[in-house]
Structures are given as structure tokens and as C-alpha cells.
Amino acid sequence: MKPWDICYQLAHLCLDEFFAQGDMEKERGIPVQMLNDREKVNRPNSQVGFIEFVICPMAESICNIFPQLDSLAQHLGTNVQNWVQLWIDEASPPEEQAAKVQERVRRVVLRLKVVTREERGIPQD
């Protein structure tokens, strides 16, 4: 929910930590957790799913309780759109698959827009 440049950096740091854990799991012969395998995880696509299923619901709740924090929802909407574009640019998915993910992102962005003060008719100070 931070501006894009910060979001991008923090996401990479977090995934680097997950991957380091996955590397240690491989070294020890332990099953590698789903998000910890650097050879299987596409960074941008993982962020789209994380935002959709974890961060978006949290942002909706935060903005419903604290409307003045709606800039967080606005940043998140921008970020998820940036992640999906990076995924498309990097992975070159089939058109049908890209369209499905873009539709999921469109719904996330709409959910986030609904909780903004402007959409809710709440005056901004």
C-alpha cells in the first residue's frame, strides 16, 4: 500500500527472504514451500495474487474504519496494475491467460476505488 517505488523494493526484499529459505530447504532435503522456490515463482504474478487475496481485503477494512487512509487503497490499485503489467512483459503469457489475470486485477482496482472517500461521498479535509 506504499507508493510504487517502495512497494517494488519491499516486495523484492520479502521474496528474496522467501527464496533464501527455499534454498536452505532444498539443501536440507526438506520439501520447499510453494512461495519459496525461486525456480518456480514469478515475482510479479505472486504479488498480484498476494494483493488480491490478502492485502486488498485488509485495505478495504482499513479504509472503512479510517477513511482518511484511502491513499493506501489508491497506491494499492496502482501497484497491482503495475505488477500485472510486469508479469505480462516478463512472462509473455498466452492472451487468454493474460486477459483472465487482467480481469481479476480490474475487479481488485474497483474494490479499492469503492472504499475511497471520493466514492463514498466523505468530505476530504
Rank of each mutant, 00 (worst) to 15 (best):
L69P: 02
D23V: 15
V108Q: 09
A20G: 05
I65N: 04
L69Q: 08
E27N: 10
G77L: 06
V109I: 10
M58L: 13
Q97I: 15
C63G: 11
C7L: 02
S61E: 09
M1S: 13
F53V: 14
L72S: 09
V109S: 03
R107I: 09
R107A: 08
R106E: 03
A20L: 09
G49Q: 11
C56F: 01
K2S: 12
H75M: 06
G22R: 08
G77Y: 06
N82V: 08
E118M: 05
M34S: 08
S92K: 15
R38Q: 03
D5R: 12
Q68Y: 13
D70N: 12
N42A: 09
M34F: 11
D37L: 08
G22L: 07
Q9A: 13
D5F: 06
M24C: 03
I88K: 14
D89Q: 13
H75V: 08
C14Q: 11
E90K: 00
N64I: 02
F50W: 07
N45A: 02
E17W: 05
V108T: 15
Q33P: 00
Q21T: 14
Q85W: 01
G49S: 08
K40A: 09
R111H: 08
E25M: 12
E60W: 03
Q21I: 15
L72V: 14
Y8H: 12
L10V: 15
R120F: 07
F53S: 05
K2G: 01
S71Q: 08
Q102L: 10
M1A: 04
P123M: 08
Q81M: 11
D70P: 05
N64D: 04
A59V: 15
C56K: 14
R38W: 06
V84F: 07
Q102A: 06
P123D: 05
R117A: 06
C7M: 12
W87C: 01
P94M: 09
E27P: 02
L112S: 09
L112D: 06
R120Q: 11
G49F: 13
V101C: 04
S61T: 13
Q9E: 10
F18G: 02
R43C: 01
C7S: 14
L13W: 03
E119A: 15
Q97H: 14
K113S: 01
P3L: 08
D5Q: 11
M1E: 05
S92T: 14
E103A: 14
L72H: 13
C14G: 02
K26Y: 10
L72T: 15
V115D: 02
E27T: 11
R106W: 04
L110P: 00
K113H: 06
V54P: 00
C7V: 12
M24E: 11
E25V: 12
P57S: 10
E39T: 14
L35I: 01
E52P: 00
K40L: 14
Q85L: 07
M24N: 02
I6V: 15
E119M: 12
Q102K: 15
R43N: 08
D5K: 13
E119S: 13
A59T: 15
E118W: 06
D70W: 04
F66V: 04
I55N: 02
A11N: 09
S92L: 05
Q81D: 05
R28H: 12
